[in-house]
């Protein structure tokens, strides 16, 4: 997260530095078009999975254990004889759900904490800022691991853990952004005119802060999906047999030498989703072709 966020900022600054970019830059490259299409397909799979795979992701067939990819089973079968393609398709909902949900949660929590810290007296701001720095000192994944140890594994735990790990970055940007907006002329003017601080907070600061945060969030969804998959891989995600990409992947890790397909396809799905989100997100941000 930290890095992706940094990258967006770097680019946004560069973009700002060169305002003369022509409308040509808005034209999406083939890569962006492909990524957008893939995301559309993915959303369709989230909403109506049966559209893509009529097979039941939970239907086991002991006689078809670890069958290689074929016309019948495009991605092969797993140890219990379940169709891996159906599981990957049906897993999109859980994986993207956690990615989107955790990011939204992190954004809202980060926004509230950041804005409050930015407006609060120095003491409180310092305390919150130091706490955020302490949290940011830890690798995001380790933070998520500690949180899930506290809240317990499962779908909710996964959501909360991934969100908590991403939250400090949002809080920090929200706080800094709040300071920028607060010191802007129009807000100062409003304060001088007697507008209560909470009101300018709602009217000016939150909207002014939200922009950069939303940009971070688009790319954050990708990171959240990867983090969630990592935790599921360690066995801390949704309970079996629910088809979640990280869960399917971890089911395949011990059959790697005999049946590579169980682990490889869900991994490809994660990669494709995150690449697409990254491509589209960067395009939306820079307002131009991806370098």
């Amino acid at each position: 997260m930290t890095l992706l966020q940094w990258r967006t900022r770097g680019e946004s600054q560069r973009g700002r530095g060169r305002p003369g970019r022509g409308p040509r830059g808005w034209l999406p490259t083939p890569g962006v078009i492909a990524a957008s299409l893939f995301l559309v397909v993915l959303m369709a799979a989230v909403l109506v999975p049966s559209l893509f795979s009529p097979l039941d992701p939970l239907r086991a067939d002991a006689s078809a254990s670890l069958d290689a990819p074929s016309a019948e089973h495009w991605f092969g079968t797993d140890r219990a004889g379940r169709d891996v393609y159906a599981r990957v398709v049906h897993g999109a909902r859980a994986s993207l759900g956690v990615g989107l949900g955790a990011t939204a949660l992190a954004l809202v929590a980060g926004l509230i904490i950041g804005v409050v810290a930015g407006l609060a007296p120095k003491m409180i701001d310092a305390a919150v800022s130091r706490s955020i720095e302490v949290l940011m000192a830890f690798p995001e994944f380790l933070l998520a691991l500690v949180v899930i140890a506290v809240v317990g594994p499962g779908e909710t735990g996964l959501l909360v853990a991934v969100a908590s790990a991403a939250m400090p970055a949002y809080a920090r940007v929200a706080r800094n952004q709040t300071l920028v907006v607060r010191n802007a002329g129009y807000v100062r003017a409003a304060t001088v005119l007697g507008v209560p601080p909470w009101r300018s907070a709602l009217r000016h600061i939150v909207p002014g802060t939200l922009g950069p945060l939303l940009v971070m969030a688009i790319l954050g969804v990708g990171t959240a999906i990867v983090s969630a998959a990592g935790l599921s891989f360690l066995g801390l995600g949704p309970a079996p047999p629910s088809p979640e990409w990280g869960v399917i992947l971890s089911e395949g890790r011990n059959t790697l030498s005999t049946a590579w397909w169980v682990a490889v396809f869900p991994g490809l799905a994660i990669m494709a989703a995150v690449v697409s989100i990254g491509t589209v997100g960067r395009h939306l941000k820079t307002g131009g072709a991806v370098a």
Binding site: G222, A229, L249, A263, G267, I270, M271, V274, V275
Partner: peptide
């Protein structure tokens, strides 16, 4: 972009395989 977007453990599994 593909490298940045891939889960570490999956890269590991693929390399291992």
């Amino acid at each position: 972009l593909a490298l940045v977007s891939s889960p570490t453990f999956w890269i590991g599994l693929v390399l291992l395989a």
